[in-house]
Design a protein around this nucleic acid. Structure first.
Lengths: 365, 365
DNA sequence: TTGTAAGCGTTATCAA
DNA sequence: TTGATAACGCTTACAA
């Protein structure tokens, strides 16, 4: 696929290609006449400088990579990533760095950097192993601009973009306590993942500060199905928690589905609180801790662009906040015969396996 | 950011860089000893061939661009794009072509191709003007691999990936008719856009074949808000349609929201049918016409990869199908005093502006 | 004001 | 089996 080259322009005009090059980039030493001649021809021929050639001479690719260490399916099934991408892509566009996208559960974080395909890299801190961090630090020392979204396993000199999860979690717990809840269950993210552990301890700390008892903690893998299963387990074990807290919205969605399938609903039977506040949460009215996901993305990209251009960059502080919607309310009143089993009495429990016949039924198909 | 080069390897081993190059790529004319020496060193130094240099000699960038002619915000607020990306990214990953992503309402479709930043391009056929199509055809003639998702304004020699919308629409209309509906409203996409016109006429053709009367057609811009506003207009005008058909799911979501705000619900008051079947639709139980969005993406990318590798490629046929969920049912029975105004009687209408007090109220916060 | 030439890192041709 | 050398298209001293 041969495109128009500088040499082509030069030949047609009878000038040297260096002259053509200078003319196009507005070198003041070029006469007005040749400048306009070159520019006119370039335009009419649809000339654009070859990116590879420029990369070679400039020793810079002029592009930034985004490595999402998950399968494409996982990534795009989770609106979290879509919103992250939104922040990233918008800034990438405005600063003129094409964004290279990779989604693979076994990514080679360094490859694009080593091939000089990109000058900078954005990835998720939480997915990096010790060795990954170390190798990326080495590349950063060589001049690569690396930004991590979320903290990695260990402290690092790499730029880390994160958001304070505690305020929103604190607000959520305060609200639950105020509404009269005193016993909750936590459906957390993968227990090996530091980010999930941080988030869980944030829930615990805030909850305990508000005298919420954690009756049960279940580790999920952040997927819809994990949430549905965790909810199923809670229902089956008749866990008397009056509120369920989640490590992310997607799992909360799964739990709502499980409730629905069991003929129950939130907040009538249990209050449900998610984390992230992805778009569908607003649609279905999930109460959740809002995380400024887009901003995480735009902050990361802005930081990278600034670093590549050797411009100063002041990072902005990002915080979460609780967004109460319709899945939180005061805990269900415990009628005498139901109090032992918590919010789920035996009659309702039976519905989980039989065709639903009560309130839930009206809402299903 | 200087990386390890072939010359570095050659120097350290006292061989010519052409030898090193051949050794790395497994040229059979290289002795086993030098081959392994070079390879070992390359590995230990973390050598990877410079992508720009390769692109220059191969006259191929080894990357594919995805141009989404919308703002990043629009793109990622619409799960349709997330799913399209899922299909594209998965194949891009597996065939080893990095994907460059652009989201801009005023894209330069040709730029990346002219800069030789990518060898192929995927974009939305429906957003291209006549001139765009023409210019892309010219580039394709020069060897660029271009695939359009959805049909452009006019017939083209470019590869077009699409899916037959009629079967699903036909099934949906059949179902409505079977359930006893006879009057519907259509909330279509932008009336200038050919794809939206095609879809609308598909709805009309199928609807009329099933004796559904189209009482009203409203053009929206495919956003959540457009759907909400269209629904508001239908409610205000007391359009007696017993089912609303939409150009996409996002608008249907907006309509459900509007219904909810008015203290009404689907399907009790109106049946609602979307188009696309994006992920949240399953979550909220929207009846919709399923479009294999991921497959549209993977088909496009597969076709491009095949073309770039000069391999044969048989395109697969994609079709839609109707997915009935909980927003479709038989039309509401018309009680004598309500029959004139259709499904919305005046008492309910009043609720749209006053705090809801009936069934709707119980479902909101 | 413009032209010449070297170099960016790789591959491929032609000798040796 | 290996080594020089010439591209690929662009930028940038250095000359003219």
């Amino acid at each position: 696929m041969r495109m128009v080259t500088l040499q082509d322009l030069a030949d047609r005009l009878g000038v040297a290609r260096s002259t053509a090059s200078r003319a196009l980039r507005g070198d003041p030493q070029i006469s007005e006449t040749t400048r306009s001649r070159v520019r006119r021809l370039a335009r009419s021929l649809g000339y654009h400088p070859n990116a590879a050639a420029r990369a070679l001479t400039h020793r810079a690719a002029g592009a930034v990579g985004l490595v999402l260490p998950r399968t494409a399916t996982f990534v795009f099934a989770n609106p979290y990533f879509a919103e992250l991408l939104e922040g990233l892509a918008a800034v990438a566009e405005s600063v003129g760095y094409p964004l290279l996208l990779s989604a693979s559960p076994t990514p080679d974080y360094e490859l694009w950097l080593r091939e000089a395909r990109v000058d900078g890299l954005v990835t998720l801190g939480s997915s990096l192993g010790e060795a990954d961090v170390e190798r990326l630090e080495a590349l950063a020392a060589l001049g690569a601009a690396v930004a991590l979204i979320g903290e990695p396993v260990r402290p690092t000199s790499l730029r880390v973009v994160l958001c304070d999860e505690r305020p929103g979690i604190e607000q959520a717990c305060a609200r639950l306590a105020h509404d009269g809840h005193d016993a909750v269950a936590l459906v957390a993210g993968p227990s090996q993942a530091p980010y999930a552990r941080h988030r869980s301890s944030a829930w615990r700390d805030a909850g305990e500060a508000h005298r919420l008892e954690f009756l049960r903690t279940i580790a999920g893998d952040d997927t819809f199905d994990a949430g549905r299963e965790a909810a199923g387990a809670l229902l089956r074990s008749r866990c008397p928690a009056s509120a369920w807290l989640f490590g992310n919205d997607l799992m909360a969605f799964g739990a709502l589905q499980a409730l629905d399938e069991a003929g129950l609903r939130s907040p009538d039977d249990v209050s449900v609180i998610g984390f992230d506040d992805v778009m569908p949460s607003a649609l279905i009215g999930l109460s959740t801790v809002h995380q400024p996901i887009r901003e995480l993305g735009s902050e990361a990209m802005t930081a990278i662009a600034a670093e590549l251009r050797r411009q100063p960059h002041a990072s902005t502080a990002l915080v979460t906040r609780f967004v109460p919607r319709r899945t939180t309310a005061a805990p269900p009143r415990r009628t005498p015969h139901a109090s032992e089993g918590g919010p789920i009495d035996s009659e309702r429990e039976a519905q989980a396996h039989a065709p639903p016949s009560r309130s839930g039924a009206a809402r299903r198909r």
